[in-house]
């Protein structure tokens, strides 16, 4: 049952994604919308009967639908600024999913770092580098959408069908201790600064190297149309 629903979900999602790719005809968008609604219904039918708390399943379904549809719109939208804004929606949905798994500190960090810092940099670069007058011709047409969608479909089918056919009851919830609160800032901080303290130091070196590298790249002078750098 789960395998059938998964195949329906993947097929409808794949065809919908192909039709929604930029470069298609106008009426393809409407067909893509219908197919994606079908895929969303398949996802709901797949997740809702699972074991586990009912509130978690409902919130999970809602956040997963928002995240996946925003991700799909992000990679198919013709205007880069809208892609960046849809990615913020993906981050918010991801943070919600992390809160569902009790990773509250990580959810806050994800919102602050991604939506607050990284996405601002992206939007800044988009505004810096975007030509005036609407979307550029290279945003109007996708490159080999059929091959790309088929590649993604095969990858996801192999991954998830293996998941559905796994041993035991993979779609059932494994019994965990609900009283234990994971992911509070005290627990994560203690874990981070005792067991992974070497990793923290190495991360600091990586950030320093990235900062020096970014400054070195930004200091170069480029003249348009030439391959020479001073």
């Amino acid at each position: 049952m789960a395998s059938v629903l998964l195949i329906i979900l993947l097929t409808l999602g794949g065809v919908g994604l192909y039709l929604a790719m930029p470069g298609g005809r106008l009426h393809a968008a409407r067909a893509a919308l219908i197919l994606l609604i079908g895929a969303a219904a398949a996802l709901v039918a797949l997740v809702l009967p699972m074991a586990g708390a009912q509130a978690e399943r409902i919130w999970f379904t809602l956040l997963a639908l928002i995240g996946l549809l925003a991700a799909l719109r992000m990679i198919t939208h013709r205007k880069p600024v809208y892609s960046a804004l849809y990615f913020i929606l993906v981050i918010i949905a991801t943070s919600g999913l992390l809160i569902l798994t009790q990773a509250t500190f990580l959810a806050a960090a994800l919102l602050i770092i991604y939506a607050g810092a990284i996405l601002v940099t992206y939007v800044f670069v988009i505004m810096l580098a975007q030509q005036a007058g609407g979307s550029a011709p290279y945003d109007q047409r996708a490159r080999e959408p059929f091959v790309g969608v088929v590649t993604g479909f095969i990858l996801l089918a192999v991954l998830t069908l293996r998941l559905a056919r796994g041993e035991g009851q993979p779609f059932a919830m494994i019994a965990t201790d609900p009283e234990r609160t994971l992911g509070s800032i005290t627990l994560v901080g203690t874990h981070l600064l005792t067991q992974y303290v070497i990793g923290i130091e190495i991360t600091g070196v990586v950030l320093l190297a990235a900062m020096v590298g970014a400054i070195a790249i930004a200091r170069r002078r480029a003249t348009a149309g030439q391959g020479e750098v001073d």
């Binding site: 699972m50 399943r57 995240g67 993906v90 999913l97 998830t160 998941l163």
Partner: peptide
């Protein structure tokens, strides 16, 4: 629920 999270993560 693990499989559901893995499904969404893989799809993203």
């Amino acid at each position: 629920m693990l499989a559901a999270y893995l499904l969404v993560g893989g799809a993203l």
